[in-house]
Amino acid sequence: MIAGASNVRSGRLRLLRGPGARSATARRGDRAARRRLGVAMLLLAPALLGLGLFYGYPLVASVFWSFTRYDQLASPAWVGLLNYRYLFTQDPQIGAAVVNTLWFVVVLVPVRIVCALIVAGLLARARTAPGLWRTIFYLPALMPPVASVVAFVFLFNPGTGPVNQVLSWFGVQGPLWFNDPAWSKPSLVILGVWVMGDLMIILLAALLEVPRELYEAASLDGAGAWHQVRHVTLPTISPVIAFSVVTGVIAALQYFTEAAVASGVASGKATVGSGTATLLGYPGTSLLTYTELLYEHGFASFQFGYASAMAVVLFAITATVLGLTIRRIRVFRAEEVR
């Protein structure tokens, strides 16, 4: 019996020596597998401790606390499903938070992927100075998110911002952007497209890996440019698009920094950190996201029990998304190694 799940090396030895030598080799393989397990555990010890301390324990604690009333002054007191009942039926802000978050999932994610795909496609064809083009389109993604949000609120500010001025040259009266509840989310989508560099690089790498022969074959069959994109490019890079969709959806579910900073800066008043969370969501509740509401309950009013219930619901949604998709995404699969 070989203890290691797939011990290629001792397997090969066994073949060389034939069936007679089997048990001795197997015993040696057994010992080697145990030694490898020991070394691996040693190398992984800090990471395993981290997984337990920062993921395992908090997940269990959150589930438990979600059934309690718990704040910084008093220890957790069991309240049954009260937090969940309030969350699903009574919280006056939850409707806006859920709608806004879903809006980002449904609009921001596909818009970013389509735009990144178009630019990546152009870059894959660019024959002159490809490195320069790549750098130009990647550059905005380097800006710290706080900096790019602050910059965008200035650029799009309705009074003196350059964007509305440039629009006025063309006779277009620009909207109020970050100060108008109807335009605040689209403004953040424009920002999201501007900083799409990472996504673009991933898609470009995928496009460059599409075997050239596939295009040659399609072209010999008389396929035009659109047909080649539709029947060669997209099917070949679909695993990478799936990766982009899944990571994009998970990022949108936890959308926080851009919305919080945009609200704080556009309102021109104190931001969330300075003791007041009342400006979360400005203008109106148009930018209030689920994780902002969680932050407000958990860390501005210290309702740990209720915040835990919100965290458990967020975990359930994320886990569902992951559970449905994680096996389909190659880079997330462990077996690819072996």
Binding site: A33, P58, S62, L294, F304, A311, I326, F332
Partner: peptide, 30 residues
Amino acid sequence: IRFRGSHVIFTAIVVAMLLPPQVTAVPVYV
């Protein structure tokens, strides 16, 4: 290194990487 359990640990790492930080924030903060 080939060892029993490496797939499970790798999957746990991937899930930890993808989990929104807000999910674990309360107990970690406490």
